[in-house]
């Protein structure tokens, strides 16, 4: 099982602070695609992904128990 966390407006789009999903074996890219299909989320191309508080590339494979977080860079200033 994996905990998938969302920050900022992604959280509002998903409606939850986090989801419990079983996504072990999938890549980050696959998870992003799945989420974009199942939730009213914007494209996640430019959203940063963390696996266990470490930056992860799109081709990283998720392990069971990994905590995944989606951190959208914002442009305000």
């Amino acid at each position: 099982m994996n905990k998938v966390l969302f920050f900022a407006h992604l959280r509002d789009a998903v409606g939850e602070e986090f989801l419990k999903l079983d996504v072990a074996g999938k890549t980050i890219a696959e998870l992003k695609a799945e989420l974009a299909t199942n939730y009213d989320l914007p494209k996640l191309d430019t959203v940063m992904t963390a696996v266990n508080e470490e930056f992860a590339q799109d081709d990283e494979v998720i392990q069971d128990g990994d905590e995944i977080a989606f951190i959208p860079p914002v442009s305000g200033g």
Partner: peptide
């Protein structure tokens, strides 16, 4: 360190700004 282009690869479209968020 990595640079901003490493992290984003492209300019995000329609990012949230202070004027919209």
């Amino acid at each position: 360190t990595p640079c901003l282009n490493c992290l984003l690869r492209t300019i995000p479209m329609q990012g949230l700004t202070c004027d919209t968020g």
